[in-house]
């Protein structure tokens, strides 16, 4: 009878409960000016914009304090609307309070001249995809504005291991987590050039191209967007 009870108890004795895996996903909070301008005309205005990402890389709405280093040259109001006042140079700053008495700031030099110079429509960012695991993953990439979003063009030197289960590609601001990243799609090309059209995303919205084994929540590789 004791053996019978032991047999009955076996499945319940050894079938475990779900535990916790803690990941170190801290990233320094940051603010980025996302509507840059190099030259503003005297008497003209420009609406600057900024995005704040918190200590896990998630975008968060926070009050932004705008300032100009030379108010005689460039004035700016609390919404980031700048006005060219006279020829010269100034630095535009966007600053966000973190709540513990510290702040994060992003600065951008602006020249005030005769006329406004809009940044080139076609601006290219890019980088190198590198493996952060034992699985093969490498290649170059470029990102350009395209339609209502961006086009990520992966180079012909791209290679990825086909042994990976469920390899996905993301855009993110935290290289240690995809919790707040934008999932693009499951990787279907493992060798050679290909591209991803991502609508509703700006060139400066994300800092990393991330490759993740989604079923096992494991980072496989990354490319810093520069």
């Amino acid at each position: 009878m004791k053996i019978f009870h032991f047999l009955l108890a076996l499945p319940f004795l050894f079938n475990s409960c779900i535990g916790d895996d803690v990941v170190d996903d801290f990233v320094p909070p940051a603010v980025r000016i996302t509507a840059p301008l190099d030259t503003l005309g005297v008497g003209k205005t420009w609406q600057f914009e900024a995005k704040f990402t918190n200590n896990i890389g998630a975008e968060e709405a926070r009050p932004v304090a705008w300032s100009s280093s030379n108010l005689a040259v460039l004035g700016i109001d609390g919404t980031g609307l700048a006005t060219g006042l006279s020829k010269g140079s100034a630095i535009v700053a966007a600053e966000v309070e973190l709540g513990d008495g510290t702040t994060v700031k992003s600065e951008r030099p602006v020249t005030v001249a005769d006329s406004t110079v809009i940044p080139p429509v076609v601006m290219t960012l890019g980088g190198e995809i590198k493996s952060t695991s034992s699985y093969a993953l490498k290649g170059s990439f470029e990102i350009t504005e395209s339609g209502s979003g961006i086009l990520i063009s992966i180079g012909s030197d791209y290679q990825a291991s086909t042994a990976l289960p469920g390899l996905y590609v993301y855009l993110g601001n935290n290289r240690s987590s995809i919790a707040n990243a934008k999932e693009l799609q499951q990787v279907a090309v493992f060798n050679g050039a290909h591209s991803y059209q991502v609508d509703g995303v700006g060139l400066n919205d994300y800092q990393y191209l991330l490759y993740w084994c989604k079923p096992f929540n494991v980072k496989v590789g990354e490319g810093e967007i520069k």
């Binding site: 079938n15 475990s16 779900i18 535990g19 996903d25 200590n55 987590s177 919790a179 929540n217």
Partner: peptide
Amino acid sequence: FSRAYMNNTISGTTGETLIPGEA
């Protein structure tokens, strides 16, 4: 009786559950 499970993934920064475990 066969059971397969995966742990919760917890943020070390915020303590939030990033990806809930399943079984």
